[in-house]
Amino acid sequence: MSENSFSRELRLLTPTHFENVFQKAIPSVSPQLTILARHNQLDHPRLGITVAKKRVKKAHDRNRIKRLVRESFRLNQHALPNTDIVVVGKSGLDTLTNQQLTQLLGKLWKKLSHRCAQSQSG
């Protein structure tokens, strides 16, 4: 497996995985995105993405957003703690350019890493 791949083991696959994160989540929030995380027992982070049709109307926009989130996660996964992560899209997310979304995700990954480190030590 290459260093920066996004294989099946790095994904949240079942509704149970998602519900588990929602129950006791550590949030990292912006006006367009909410990232929720919960520590897992694995040696790597896992990602789930939800972008509702109600929030982002056009399928091509939802697909673009999910593609960018996956790419950002793939590039930043080694800096992230061992957590299950759910990225939730909010209204207005489709107005961001690819560059703005990538920058926003970079900030939120850092914020999330910091908060997860605090919650483990505290």
Rank of each mutant, 00 (worst) to 15 (best):
K53H: 10
N63A: 05
K57I: 13
I35S: 08
L108Y: 03
N63Q: 08
K66P: 01
A25N: 05
L33Q: 02
P15N: 06
H39P: 03
L12E: 03
T16C: 09
K53I: 02
T97D: 06
L75A: 04
F18Y: 05
T34F: 15
A37R: 12
Q77M: 06
L101S: 01
A37Q: 10
C116I: 10
M1F: 05
T102S: 12
E19L: 15
L47D: 01
T16Q: 15
M1W: 14
T16P: 03
G48W: 08
L10N: 07
V86G: 08
V88H: 07
A79F: 10
F73M: 00
I49P: 01
S30C: 05
E3C: 09
L42N: 12
K53W: 11
E9K: 13
S2I: 15
I26P: 04
G89M: 15
G92Y: 12
I26C: 14
D84T: 06
L80A: 05
D43L: 13
Q32D: 00
Q103C: 11
K24L: 03
Q41G: 12
W109L: 03
A59L: 11
R62K: 02
I85N: 06
K107R: 11
K110G: 06
H39G: 03
L93I: 05
V29E: 04
L105T: 03
Q118L: 09
K24D: 04
L104V: 04
L42D: 07
R74L: 03
T95S: 14
Q100L: 06
I65G: 00
H78L: 09
L112S: 02
V29Q: 09
